[in-house]
């Protein structure tokens, strides 16, 4: 559900795109997977420790700690979203990252859309520029979709 947890817009937008990671596993299964890895890895390590080879244990513990950090990061960012909308003469970029929400408004007609494209990297980044300030949007979109969003936005912002 791409719209879940995102506040409604106050006005009917002309254009609106939400970009967010698809949290395809969900919190509960995420921690179940983590638990299963913990049981397996630490279980093995404890078994070896019982045989006298205790030096597996610190590595296993370290690994599970790193894995925990990775899973926690994913968990904290699972609900992140970004939304770009064009309403009247405004372009609004809102985002939530790890629970903190930010919102930027730009003047529609003074905003420039740029695709920072990296041929070397086969990657692209969509950026909005307003009065020397840049803000990126849509890193979580598939690259093809990002190109389409850029094209549509450019068309909209150019129309006066």
């Amino acid at each position: 559900m791409p719209g879940a947890g995102i506040p409604l817009l106050s006005a009917e937008p002309e254009f609106c795109v939400v970009s967010r990671r698809n949290d395809s596993l969900g919190s509960r299964w995420r921690w179940r997977v983590y638990a299963s890895l913990c049981i397996l890895s630490l279980g093995l390590a404890l078994g070896f420790a019982a045989l006298g080879a205790w030096m597996v244990l610190p590595y296993s513990a370290l690994e599970m700690a790193v894995l925990y950090l990775a899973f926690r990061w994913i968990e904290r960012h699972a609900a992140d979203w970004e939304r770009i909308s064009v309403c009247g003469d405004r372009v609004i970029v809102e985002r939530e990252r790890a629970g903190t929400r930010t919102r930027r408004e730009f003047n529609r007609y003074w905003t420039r859309v740029e695709v920072e494209e990296d041929a070397f990297n086969h990657s692209s980044r969509l950026k909005l520029w307003f009065a020397g300030q840049g803000v990126s949007f849509g890193d979580e979109l598939p690259a093809g979709k990002r190109a389409i969003v850029a094209r549509d936005l450019r068309r909209l912002l150019a129309a006066r």
């Binding site: 890895l37 397996l40 890895s41 597996v56």
Partner: peptide, 17 residues
């Protein structure tokens, strides 16, 4: 990846010993 996560500490422990 699951297998790797399970057994890499075993190798690391073995060579550390």
């Amino acid at each position: 990846a699951y297998l790797l996560i399970a057994v890499m500490p075993v190798l690391a422990g073995a060579v550390t010993m």
